[in-house]
Design a protein around this nucleic acid. Structure first.
Length: 304
DNA sequence: AACCAGTGCAACCGCGTAGGC
DNA sequence: AGCCTACGCGGTTGCACTGGT
């Protein structure tokens, strides 16, 4: 039973009346941050009292975890993070905290909000349920390949403009394994990454999607028609463009990196940040949404 | 300038669960 | 074993901001 439960009300109604709600003030933030800096986290209810905050422990915890924590990463969700969210959500569903473990600095709340405001919005606009197989396939066979392509084209364009100055980025894992991602060869350099390896990751050899120089629209529309009996499921839908994302994250992901704080593409952000804002972000690009709608219409027309 | 609808995000709520007594 | 407390998670709400009319 938490502080909203019966026992709380029985204990002290006056305390409940005094509790403050709503947006946090700078002063409250200061108090909470200062107190945690001195005494550490935990025991949120007593922490709230000791810090002189008229807030529930729950509220303090949320404020700290989602906003005040020094390692909270703010700003737009990057392309790489989008890709990872899509992949992990397809695997785990609405397990936001679990997904958040693999996006360092991002909170479950932020990821959840991203999903609801961007992804679900698109599902709605595409007139299909976000949990439907149709929508999942749209993500898997269209959005995710597009993301991969844009991530790589962003890296490639940067490479072309900066010469060979930036051809790799560093990745550190919770185990302090140090890995390097080679943008020229699209693979990881190093012993092991845990969640990925050279064979798993997208390379020019194993993915025509990732390096396709042809416009997506052309590719998709030239793709063989899906088998009407199979209701838009399976790699046969878009064989030339199919990329198996199950390889992106190893099946042993959970086991090998249960408490992983993998700094996924920690520095790729810097590499592509200058151009990523204008690249494809779910919910932000009319062009790509239009493309998805066209594709959906195409599929509908050919399926039935 | 005023209004309104849409959007994004911080914060809250309800519930399940683990652990202590 | 049963109760209580604290915590964490996923779902939901409220509100500030923004862009369109």
């Amino acid at each position: 039973m938490d502080e909203k439960g019966r026992s709380f009300k029985n204990n002290n109604m006056e305390d409940e009346m005094d509790l403050k709600r709503g947006p946090w003030t700078a002063e409250e933030d200061f108090k909470l941050t200062n107190y945690i800096a001195t005494h550490g986290e935990g025991r949120w209810n007593s922490l709230s009292r000791c810090a002189g905050l008229q807030r529930t422990g729950k509220s303090c915890r949320l404020r700290w975890l989602n906003y005040l924590r020094p390692d909270v990463r703010r700003g737009n969700i990057t392309l790489e993070e989008q890709l990872l969210i899509l992949e992990l959500h397809s695997r785990w569903g609405n397990r936001w905290s679990k997904i958040a473990q693999y996006l360092p600095g991002r909170t479950d709340n932020e990821i959840k909000n991203y999903w609801r405001t961007r992804v679900q919005k698109h599902a709605k606009q595409l007139k299909c349920d976000v949990n439907s197989q149709q929508f999942k396939d749209t993500m898997k066979y269209m959005w995710m390949p597009r993301l991969v392509e844009r991530i790589q084209s962003a890296a490639a364009s940067l490479t072309s403009t900066t010469g060979s100055a930036t051809t790799s980025s560093c990745i550190t894992t919770s185990n302090n394994e140090f890995m390097t991602y080679d943008y020229n060869n699209n693979n990881f350099i190093g012993e092991r990454l845990g969640v990925m390896n050279n064979n798993d990751y997208i390379t020019p050899e194993n993915s025509s999607v990732a390096v396709s120089p042809v416009s997506d629209l052309t590719d998709y529309y030239n793709a063989p028609k899906p088998n009407p009996d199979q209701n838009l499921v399976g790699p046969q839908m878009l064989p030339d463009n199919y990329f198996d994302y199950s390889g992106l994250l190893d099946e042993d992901l959970t086991a090998t990196h249960e408490q992983s704080n993998l700094d996924w593409f920690e520095n790729i952000d810097e590499v592509v940040s200058s151009s990523s804002e204008s690249l494809w972000n779910i919910g932000e690009s009319d062009e790509d949404f239009w493309f998805c709608q066209q594709q959906q219409q195409f599929n509908n027309n050919n399926d039935f």
